[in-house]
Each structure stands twice: as C-alpha cells, then as structure tokens.
C-alpha cells in the first residue's frame, strides 16, 4: 500500500478501565498521519486529541527498554519499533499483550512472568561466595564461550514472546519462552555454576518440555533473541544431564593480572577509578 497520500489513519484501541468497565471494548479514533510515525507516536496523538485517560507503558522510544510491547494488528510487537506504514493498512488495531491479565487499557500485568524469571535465578550463581560478594577481579571467558549465551542476553523482557506462544495461551503453569530462554542464558555461561539449582524449577510442568516448537516466540522477538532455540538447547542439556552425559565444568576461574609483561609503547595508562 502506498502511504504517500495518506493524511489520516484510524486507531482501534482496546480500552479497559477496571473502575468502570466489566470487560474490555474497542474504541476508534482518527488521527493525522505523517511519514515516519510509529504506532507509539500515534498513541500519543490519540491521547492528546481524543482520549486523555488512555494508558500504556513506554519509555525509551528506541526498542531498548521493552516497555511498549502490545498487540498490533494481531501481532505482538513493540509500539516504538513499528512504523505505521509497514503495517500496510490505514487501520491500526492496538490491544494489550494477550496471555497477561489487563491492568488498564494497553497495560498488561507482567508480574507473573517476571516472578518466574526471578525464580530461575537470572544471575551468575557460583560457590565462591567471598569472590561474589567482594570481587577482586574479572572471570576469564573466551570469545567462543561468550557466543554460547550472547544472543540470549539481548532479551529486553518485553513479553512479546509470551503473548505469541500458543502453549502459554492454554497453560498457565508453563514458565514461557522469556524465563526459560534466560535460564538457558545463565546455564550456558561459562562463569556460572547454577544449573542444578535452576533444574529444580525446570523439571516438571513448568519446564521446557511443554514447548513443542511453534516457533512464534522467535518470530515475534524484536531483538532476535530466538527463545525457541534457547529452549531446545536447554532440553538437550537436560537430556544429557539425565543420562549423566552433561559435561561437568568448573565455572570460569578468576583472570589473573599478567605478570612480567611490559606495556607497549603508545598505549596510555587506564584512568584512575572514579569509585573506590
């Protein structure tokens, strides 16, 4: 569709006010269109011109914070990352992310997802507590080891994958793509030793075995994180662990300061630490 002559677009917004409404309903607004407008820009115009009480979450406006995940013309996407012209229609239907309860209008309740994420220990788990509490240096990690988890570390927790997942649609117990991908992100980190702790949460109905590779999470992910891949790789790890075939690794050791080497000419000294 050619957007060169488009002057106005129609926004269909799913509204729900818990103080007034018994169920969500659709409302339509017409707003002026300008080239380059994102769906989020349009929502600001709707709020300014027609519906001052319209509520949604947004912050960075550049696809980094993950706040503005919403259902745009049937697909979970980031409002700030979606130009109206790429939808190829002058009617923009915006609803809250499905599979999450609606707090108000376009604001989903992400807390169950974030709570599951928390339970899966999304941080480096090691036995050397003293080093973890009072770090004396960096842990050694090769570029190849970094690649094992780097892709999954780009997750912005927007919840689009959870909204697209057909298993999440019918199964409230299943952890979902975001928490599982993040669990694998830490399991595959060479500095981490928390696999056995996370395995306790991953076993049973909450774990990755409820995923049957519809692939929607990876398709809708605005950052290319590919949660479906992380979940399949996690299953492989769990199978290998069950048959005692999982490689037992020691978490990465502390990188020692090189000794007996001289600084090359022309490389300046590092600046003094600003925090002591």
């Amino acid at each position: 569709m050619d957007f060169a002559n488009v002057k106005e677009v129609t926004y269909r917004v799913r509204r729900f006010d818990p103080d007034k409404d018994r169920a969500p309903h659709w409302e339509e607004y017409r707003i002026p269109y300008a080239p380059g407008m994102t769906v989020l820009d349009g929502l600001w115009l709707v709020k300014e011109l027609h519906a001052p009480t319209l509520a949604w979450r947004s912050s960075c406006r550049m696809g980094v914070c993950g706040s503005c995940g919403m259902l745009i013309n049937g697909s979970p996407r980031l409002g700030c990352n979606t130009q109206i012209c790429e939808l190829e229609t002058t009617t923009v239907a915006v609803g809250p992310l499905p599979n999450f309860n609606i707090i108000k209008d376009l604001v989903p309740d992400l807390m169950p997802m974030l709570e599951t994420h928390r339970q899966l220990l999304p941080f480096i788990v090691r036995d050397d507590h003293e080093e973890m509490e009072k770090p004396s240096g960096e842990f050694w990690q090769s570029p190849e080891e970094l690649e094992h988890y780097l892709q999954f570390s780009y997750c912005i927790k927007c919840g689009c994958c959870m909204a697209a997942c057909p298993t999440c649609a019918t199964d409230p117990v299943y952890s979902g793509p975001m928490p599982l991908a993040q669990a694998h992100r830490y399991n595959s980190d060479s500095r981490d030793n928390g696999f056995t702790h996370r395995r306790q949460v991953l076993e049973g109905e909450r774990g990755p075995w409820r995923c049957h590779f519809a692939g929607e999470c990876s398709r809708v992910c605005p950052k290319g994180v590919d949660p479906a891949k992380a979940i399949q790789l996690m299953k492989r790890e769990l199978v290998a662990d069950y048959f005692k075939l999982r490689e037992q690794r020691c978490p990465a050791r502390l990188a020692e300061t090189p000794k007996g080497v001289a600084r090359r000419e022309g490389i300046p000294e590092a600046p003094a630490p600003t925090v002591r």
Binding site: P98, N99, F100, N101, M111, C165, A169, T170, R219
Partner: peptide, 21 residues
Amino acid sequence: MLTAKGYPNRLGVGGWLGGGR
C-alpha cells in the same frame, strides 16, 4: 507463585491459531 491481577486476557485454545505471525 505470584497471582496475576486485572482482567484475564489469556487467549485459550484460540491462541493455538492466533496471536502471532
């Protein structure tokens, strides 16, 4: 587990078909 608040918006069996690309 934390209980969700707000209006339920789980897609149900319809979510096997819709809600993605």
